[in-house]
Amino acid sequence: MMSELFVKRVLPVVTVVMAIIAIWYASAVFMNAPFERDRAARADKTITFSEIVPLTMNQDRPVLPTPHQVVTEIWKTTVEKKVTSKRSLIYHAWITLSATLAGFVMGTLLGIVLAIAIVHSKVMDKSMMPWVITSQTIPILAIAPMIIVVLNSVGITGLFPKAVISTYLSFFPVAVGMVKGLRSPEIMHLDLMKTYSASPSQVFWMLRLPSAIPYLFASMKVAIAISLVGAIVGELPTGAVAGLGARLLAGSYYGQTVQIWSALISAAALAAILVAIVSLLGTWVNKRMGRRPEAA
């Protein structure tokens, strides 16, 4: 049983990940080699390929840092630095994370409220729904710098403007998913509730909401990933001093490629962890509610 799971699931993934790392190393050699050749040419030395390879692995400002350089940088800036230090990645990640979570919570609540209104009122449905869908086709992130500056000009700074961007991004998937979910009970079940002479609020609490929960968690997975993107992009235009987005921007100003890559990898790890938490929570809640785990 275990070995079958290993062969069918784990082994392919490990192979692909190993292949990616191998390609990464190969491209690092390829992309960093010209710099070493230039340096050798300037020193009037000829340099063989076997001499170049180890040199490309540990440049100060490589075109493409190697995986072990990124890992060392992350290790140095998380474990070896104090959490309160401005150079600690944990400190920056926390700044971004707090904005992400604040935005995610606000966005989810807003999305749920909107979905409830849309499901229960025909006017809301007919007038709002087309606009909710249209707004998804608009590159919302483009307004991120404006939100930051506008809120700055009224004296609101720090966490809130970034959270607003995350809210704005995350409420769409939740609203659309919840509308679908609240409408998912079958006519039979709704009719049954009617024969019990259930009030609209009873139908909502006892039938609609429970059947919408799986949809809610599916959309929350999308919403939390997009909240993180919103928080990171929200840190770009103001020249924010803290946060993963600020690390990216500072790294690109000063050509610190290792710093950019380590910020990028930590952002990716953060996203993966957040999605995993929401997904685990979803499985747990669904199980508690007596729903059988789905295959997908």
Binding site: L11, P12, V13, V14, T15, V16, V17, I20, K221, A225, L228, V229, I232, V233, L244, G245, L248, L249, G251, S252, T257, I260, W261, A263, L264, A267, A268, A271, A272, V275
Partner: peptide, 20 residues
């Protein structure tokens, strides 16, 4: 092998590679 990696990658903030 590729599907879990691809699914993970679609959820990541890929936009961060912009400076690179």
């Amino acid at each position: 092998g590729l599907m879990p990696v691809g699914n993970l990658m679609s959820a990541l903030p890929i936009i961060g590679i912009a400076p690179i």
